[in-house]
């Protein structure tokens, strides 16, 4: 009788261990996939920017400085590695883009251009996608980190070598509204 109870407990324990381990693997994959989603959108933004700047050049002759800033920020962002560095570089880029969008407001011909309009929509959408992908990534990271830190799943996590993941954080610059100077 006692033997059966022990056996039952062992079986339950092993079953829990397997289920938790598999859950952790699924969570790690979800985090990895979430990061790839962000990467796809960041790359899309990097691809769109030169096109937009190329078209905008013809209309915004006096804003060369802003256009150069956008391109420089884009190149920095393309070279950044890992969530933390990427977050900082992308924040720079988003800031520069925000400035560009604000300036574009005062060029009606620019905004009337069909090509520019569709590029703007694509960029706006890409900005949103980045934000949503980040939201989803961070939610996945939180769920996974909770599992890794909470008892009793943390025992399985340590056994299986699961480490906590890094959040994709964006410094103040991007979250703050873009300042427009009316010189």
């Amino acid at each position: 009788m006692f033997g059966w109870v022990v056996l039952g407990l062992v079986v339950a324990l092993v079953a829990y261990g397997i289920a938790t381990y598999n859950g952790l693997v699924a969570g790690r994959n979800q985090v990895g996939n979430g990061w790839k989603q962000i990467d796809v959108q960041l790359k899309r933004r990097h691809d769109l920017i030169p096109n937009l700047v190329e078209v905008a050049k013809d209309y915004m002759g006096y804003e060369q400085e802003t256009l150069k800033q956008v391109i420089a920020a884009r190149n920095d962002a393309m070279n950044a590695q890992g969530p933390a560095a990427t977050g900082a570089a992308e924040a720079q880029l988003a800031g520069a883009l925000g400035k560009f969008f604000a300036l574009a407001e005062s060029y009606p011909e620019l905004k009337a251009n069909d090509n520019v309009r569709s590029l703007m929509e694509e960029l706006t959408s890409t900005e949103n996608k980045i934000a949503f992908a980040r939201q989803h990534y961070n939610d996945s990271v939180m769920a996974q980190n909770n599992r890794i830190e909470q008892f009793p799943s943390n025992v399985v996590a340590r056994f299986g070598g699961f480490g906590p993941h890094e959040y994709f954080e964006v410094p103040e610059a991007e979250t703050a509204p873009v300042k427009v100077s009316l010189r």
Binding site: Q30, G34, Q41, S125, K129, F132, A133, Q135, H136, S140
Partner: peptide, 8 residues
């Protein structure tokens, strides 16, 4: 597509 990304 944005919403699909947000929902994962």
């Amino acid at each position: 597509e944005e919403m699909a990304i947000a929902a994962g």
